[in-house]
Design a protein around this nucleic acid. Structure first.
Lengths: 164, 164
DNA sequence: AGGCTGACTTAGCTTCTGAAAAGTCAGCTA
DNA sequence: TAGCTGACTTTTCAGAAGCTAAGTCAGCCT
């Protein structure tokens, strides 16, 4: 199998540069642990409470507390007080836009696990609510073409292209 | 922010089931460490040799050796001997189809990092070789609709739907 | 024959991730 | 007032992941 991505411009050859601003590495500095990923999974599945996270992820309470604190500090989850009638004030954790935007990464991992690590293609599937069709994570270009890894060029980002 | 994914059928309510066959968790059992992800990044960028992985990822030799061995054992990389004329036999590591299929997960992390962790939108960008347009990782359904996280339904997989 | 290089391994250490078990504390309920 | 529950914290410990520094070993090159 050939290297899927072709380096272009000043990125070629690979020896000529260092990946020190690599945003994969930066992302992994924010969510690196299994427990963080799985807590986010549960947040996508709708969990909001401390005990639910601990139990459904299957991790201990100290780890749950540490991970939730980190995810709140990093801005992926928001902690807020709420109260149901007749109950006392409780805390709940909810995804922020920043946390919710990790959705494709989570489901890309799931899709890979479905394909390569489970004999039945995985226990659950994602469907598009409007049309009921199965949802996949894919690479697609601005012109609408589905892109396979070996059609990718890597280029230094042009400054004006920032997506913000 | 509401829970983005709606649980359907026997998955609702969340208390009624455990995610013990979750393929996100299984995927994380295979590639969990920062060093594993970054070695895969370098493999996508075309690195094949031990020293290159160590140096370009910025990790020590013992870690490089351990991670490469694990990735080979898991079938994400393939180790093979090769020889250039006048040189002695060396080893090189190359992505297998299983490893290459992690591409969307890697670039989904990169895209998230580009959006949320770098003021300039990240140092590099992916382009479609054929048309030059920027490539993104996205959720899309079988009918071709781009799907946002809050339009997702999660359902137990129907047996006949296995993708194999 | 001796040196160099690539590809590792070994030893010793620190830090991080995680578990189990037990304790804390506020505030509603009985 | 006593108990219970949710949401944690504290303590203690094991094991994984990382580092540096040094050693090994094969084989081409001089």
């Amino acid at each position: 199998m050939q290297a899927p991505v072709r380096l272009t411009g000043s990125l070629d050859p690979r020896e000529g540069w260092t990946a020190d601003r690599c945003t994969i590495a930066k992302a992994l500095d924010v969510v690196s642990t299994r427990s963080a990923f799985l807590i986010l999974r549960e947040a996508f599945y709708g969990s909001t409470r401390f005990d639910d996270f601990a139990q459904r992820v299957g991790i201990s309470e100290p780890v749950t507390a540490a991970r939730l604190r980190e995810l709140v500090d990093e801005g992926l989850l928001e902690r807020e007080d709420y109260r149901e009638p007749g109950q006392r004030t409780r805390q709940r954790y909810q995804l922020t836009p920043k946390g919710a935007d990790l959705c494709p990464a989570l489901f890309a991992l799931m899709q890979w696990g479905d394909r390569w690590l489970d004999e039945h293609g995985g226990p659950v599937e994602l469907l598009h609510r409007d049309c009921g069709e199965r949802v996949t994570v894919e690479l697609r270009c601005g012109a609408g073409h589905e892109v396979s890894p070996d059609e990718l060029d890597l280029a230094r980002r042009r400054r004006a292209d920032s997506r913000h």
